[in-house]
């Protein structure tokens, strides 16, 4: 039996209509040494069945809905338990392009980064650029990120990310746990000396499902995420012993 050392984490919540297609597309494009892990975040529909029926992915069902953060962390814990070398987080709703993955993990192979973010705004500005208001929100987080870390992250809300072993170990214990964890994750990683790098990635409009953030909730999330970013920046770095114990 082939031992997979790379894990593709696909968190999904109520995505029965598109998860099958996403997995089909993924398995055609990615290397064979990738194991696909679907984290079904307590969906009420047939997401789990749809995913297992493709026979292309391992499905882990969370008994209750934890939010994206908790789902991704489950995948990272799996990666940590199985001693994976690389973990990639890939959305199940068809937003991300599987062809971006090879480029995404290259900096990890070259050992010039611990976490790689796929950015839709770098270089070419191809593909789906999101709606006007959402772009304003992304710009806002970019500024906050820049103020708190001194780094230029062009797409801080991007969910397309890759982690090396060091990042898997750290994030499996300390990943931001609520919905919409991406901008917080950047501050947390920077604070704890994980190297972050952005590479260009093409994104598409979601094929089905709805965003984790509805417009009515977006102001609440903006405040919540900003607050979390500020407090993570104010906290001292998490010490090694804590990382080991958790």
């Amino acid at each position: 039996m082939q031992i997979c050392k790379k894990l593709l984490i696909v968190p999904c919540y109520n995505e029965e209509s598109c998860i099958g297609g996403t997995l089909q597309e993924l398995s055609q494009v990615i290397d064979r040494d990738f194991k696909i892990l679907v984290i079904n975040d307590g969906s009420e529909d047939a997401t789990s069945e749809q995913a297992s029926n493709t026979n292309m992915a391992l499905v882990i069902d969370l008994p209750v809905n934890l939010g994206v953060g908790g789902a991704v962390q489950t995948g990272l814990k799996y990666a940590q338990n199985k001693n994976m070398e690389i973990a990639v987080k890939f959305d199940g709703d068809g937003q991300h392009d599987p062809n971006s993955i090879a480029e995404l993990i290259q900096p990890l192979k070259d050992d010039i980064a611990d976490i790689v973010i796929g950015s839709r705004f770098m270089n070419s500005n191809q593909g789906y650029q999101s709606t006007f208001w959402r772009r304003i929100g992304i710009k806002f987080f970019e500024i906050i990120c820049h103020l708190l870390t001194g780094k230029k992250i062009t797409d801080p809300t991007s969910g397309l990310r890759a982690y090396n072993r060091k990042a898997i170990k750290f994030m499996s214990s300390h990943y931001p746990s609520f919905d919409y964890p991406e901008p917080e994750e950047i501050i947390l990683a920077h604070k704890n000396n994980l190297r972050i790098k952005e590479v260009p990635a093409v994104m598409r409009d979601r094929q089905a499902g709805s965003s984790t953030i509805s417009s009515a909730l977006s102001v609440y999330y903006m405040c919540k995420v900003t607050l979390a970013m500020l407090f993570i920046a104010m906290r001292p770095p998490i010490r090694k012993e804590q990382t080991n114990n958790a």
């Binding site: 391992l58 008994p63 489950t74 814990k77 799996y78």
Partner: peptide, 17 residues
């Protein structure tokens, strides 16, 4: 409790697998 429930949920899911 939020943290504890999250940890337990993740652990249950991984163990079930």
């Amino acid at each position: 409790q939020n943290d504890k429930i999250r940890l337990l949920t993740q652990e249950v899911a991984l163990l079930k697998n």
